[in-house]
Simulated assay, not measured.
Amino acid sequence: MIEQGGLGQKIKALRTARGIPLSVMSERTGYSVSALSKMENDRLGLTYDKLTKLTGALGVDIGSLFTDTAQTAVHAGGRRSVARKGEGRNIQTGSYDYLYVSPELSRKRIVPIKGRVHAATLEEFGPLIRHEGEEWIYVLDGVLEVHSEFYEPEILESGDSIYIDSRMGHAYLSKTPGGTEIIAVCTEQTDSLFYGDPPAEAVRSTDAPAAKPRRRKPKTR
């Protein structure tokens, strides 16, 4: 079962423990106080970009949202986590279903995610998203259309992948009925968030016509 309940309450608990008012969180993240209140009460979906902004404003890593006990930094390379099929923390949003793998490990250098993309159009997806760090997307099953603010859309098929700067506005759309299954590996860069910056909402260009997605050339034998 895919669920998201509890993440908002965990964020609220972390914020309250640090004595950070919602007004300050609003300044740090660019989200309105009303939107933050809805997130904390699990009435507004928490996508990866939202989580990176919220945890960055709190000064914690995303892994702390999935663990009940705080973990200290480990200097030796002795940590490991085995995730069996389907294990992890499931989160459902309007555009994606996420499975955060090995969520019990905090302070990870990377955030591994298995996901299913549902949104088929930019209208369904909403504004392009952006967050700190970089990410690698690998298509497991289906066809994925990748939009970004600096490049023409790309069509990726099963076995294809793309590596992008996550600060660039981007969106992933499914071109397969029932959704497209992907693996995402994102870097954890919460320390590099700049507090007080304006909301990092991507702007879609209205001056130029929409570019046609690039497709791979068919293989010849």
Rank of each mutant, 00 (worst) to 15 (best):
Q4G: 11
G6S: 13
L7N: 02
Q9C: 10
Q9T: 13
I11Q: 03
L14V: 04
I20G: 06
P21W: 10
L22I: 06
S26I: 07
S26E: 08
S26Q: 08
E27Y: 03
T29E: 03
S32T: 06
S32R: 00
A35F: 12
D42V: 06
D42Y: 04
R43C: 00
R43L: 07
G45T: 06
L46Y: 07
T47R: 10
L51R: 03
T52V: 05
T52D: 02
T52E: 08
T52Y: 01
L54T: 01
L54Y: 09
L58H: 04
D61Y: 11
I62C: 02
I62R: 00
S64T: 11
T67F: 05
D68P: 07
T72F: 14
T72C: 13
H75V: 15
H75T: 14
H75N: 15
G77A: 15
A83Y: 03
A83I: 08
G88M: 03
T93H: 03
G94M: 06
L99D: 00
Y100N: 01
V101R: 04
I110L: 12
A120K: 14
A120C: 10
L122D: 01
E135V: 00
V139C: 02
L144N: 05
L144F: 03
Y151F: 14
Y151G: 09
Y151H: 13
E152K: 09
I155N: 00
E157G: 08
S158Q: 13
S158F: 09
S158E: 13
D160H: 06
I164A: 06
S166P: 06
R167A: 04
G169M: 05
A171G: 09
G178S: 14
E181M: 07
C186A: 13
C186P: 00
T187N: 02
E188L: 14
L193R: 15
P198D: 04
P199E: 03
A200F: 10
E201K: 08
T206F: 11
P209S: 09
R216V: 09
R216K: 01
K217F: 15
T220E: 00
